[in-house]
Amino acid sequence: MTELKIPNHIAIILDGNGRWAKKQNRPRTFGHKEGAENVIRIARSAKKFGVKTLTLYAFSTENWKRPASEVGFLMDLLIKFVNSKIDELMEEDCKLNFLGDITKLPKKTKEACEFALDKTKDNKSLVINIALNYGGRDELVHSFKEIMKKGYGSDEITEELISDNLYTSGQADPDLLIRPGGELRLSNFLVYQLAYTELYFTEVLWPDFTEDDLREAIVAFTKRDRRYGGL
Rank of each mutant, 00 (worst) to 15 (best):
residue 49 F to H: 08
residue 41 R to V: 08
residue 38 N to S: 09
residue 213 D to T: 05
residue 155 D to M: 05
residue 184 L to H: 10
residue 7 P to E: 09
residue 94 C to L: 14
residue 100 G to R: 02
residue 75 M to C: 04
residue 231 L to Y: 06
residue 143 S to D: 04
residue 68 A to W: 05
residue 199 L to E: 03
residue 68 A to N: 10
residue 179 R to E: 10
residue 201 F to K: 11
residue 60 S to Y: 04
residue 115 F to S: 02
residue 160 E to V: 02
residue 128 I to R: 06
residue 2 T to S: 09
residue 65 K to E: 07
residue 177 L to H: 11
residue 112 A to W: 05
residue 182 G to F: 07
residue 182 G to S: 11
residue 217 A to Q: 07
residue 36 A to I: 02
residue 14 L to M: 15
residue 105 L to F: 04
residue 89 L to F: 15
residue 99 L to F: 15
residue 211 E to A: 14
residue 74 L to R: 03
residue 60 S to M: 06
residue 29 T to F: 05
residue 194 L to V: 14
residue 212 D to H: 09
residue 54 L to K: 01
residue 1 M to I: 11
residue 191 V to Q: 10
residue 208 D to I: 09
residue 212 D to M: 13
residue 154 S to G: 03
residue 144 F to S: 12
residue 177 L to E: 08
residue 138 D to P: 02
residue 102 I to R: 02
residue 217 A to H: 01
residue 6 I to S: 06
residue 1 M to E: 13
residue 140 L to P: 00
residue 112 A to M: 06
residue 179 R to S: 10
residue 56 L to Y: 03
residue 229 G to A: 00
residue 136 G to R: 04
residue 13 I to W: 01
residue 171 Q to F: 09
residue 166 L to E: 03
residue 25 N to Q: 12
residue 176 L to Q: 08
residue 10 I to A: 12
residue 28 R to Q: 11
residue 26 R to V: 04
residue 3 E to R: 11
residue 85 K to A: 11
residue 185 R to A: 13
residue 66 R to S: 03
residue 47 K to E: 08
residue 160 E to A: 12
residue 158 T to V: 12
residue 122 D to N: 15
residue 163 S to T: 13
residue 167 Y to Q: 07
residue 70 E to G: 10
residue 105 L to T: 04
residue 30 F to S: 10
residue 25 N to R: 13
residue 20 W to P: 00
residue 146 E to A: 12
residue 41 R to N: 15
residue 132 L to R: 00
residue 219 V to F: 00
residue 171 Q to R: 06
residue 24 Q to E: 13
residue 149 K to N: 15
residue 99 L to E: 02
